[in-house]
Design a protein around this nucleic acid. Sequence first.
DNA 1: TTGCAGGGGTCAA
DNA 2: TTGACCCCTGCA
Length: 298
Amino acid sequence: MLASMEFKGYKIFEKKDTVIVEGIRDFNLRHTFECGQCFRWQREWDGSYTGVARERVINVDMQEDTLYIRNTSVEDFQNIWYNYFDLGRDYSLIKHQVAQDEVMEQAVAFGNGIRLLRQDLWETIISFILSSNNRIPRIMKIISAISQMYGKELHMGDTCYYTFPGTARLCSASVEELDACRGGYRCKYIVNTSRMIQEGMVLPEQLAGMPAQAARNELMKLEGVGPKVADCILLYSGTRYDVFPTDVWVKRVMEALYFHQETPAAEIQAYVADKFGHLAGFAQQYLFYYAREMRIGT
DNA sequence: TTGCAGGGGTCAA
DNA sequence: TTGACCCCTGCA
């Protein structure tokens, strides 16, 4: 019999290097890791996922309402993973609040179990600069290459993983050197953005206290960050949830299902701000995943 | 096998 | 507003 303890409504156990969390609701690993919000989680042959985040490598698996986190400790679960997986949020309530019409009901049912990860802000900035004009498998390859080139080694079992490098390390890289990661013209953006942050020209830690538009404008001072990338950074780092990143897929699904004609991004933004308010980011995530998987508008 | 079109945000003109 | 940026994928 393993000793258990209560933590914020969850029952947790520790078995060797694995933390077992019971009572998990609204968490589907595939929907969460493959909905386009993150680039460092790999599906394993058994359906579990292995990922590097917060300078650690873990493997996660779900069986019914139980979450298994391998290569970690109860302390790390309490200090890091509880927050990273946004386990303090009631997604049933959010789904109920955003499923206010037939389209959203379908999108929510389809993406049931998506959780918005609270990812490291710095890593999210660089990841989404790389996402522009790019596709997910390629973004994953580039981030993996950057980590291998500049990150620190981590181990789980016999396999070696690499942390995402910090600001200081990346801003000391040259564009020519970084070019080996195959990021193309985005390598220049990464070096310049790293320098701007390192020199304090943009202060990411202050974004959380700003209104959405101010935070967006602050991020757009960085090279390679436009309106869509800024919104992605704010949403996927858990900084703000009242943003609605509008890429081609979201634009398509909104036009196909709501406007029934070509519509400027600004008009879509105004519509969703009114419709979803402070939950716009959650609504966007369900819609994006639904649109992409169903290939709506293609 | 080769070559070409398509995809995809931001920047600069 | 439009073309360039980069590289991978899919399909002749």
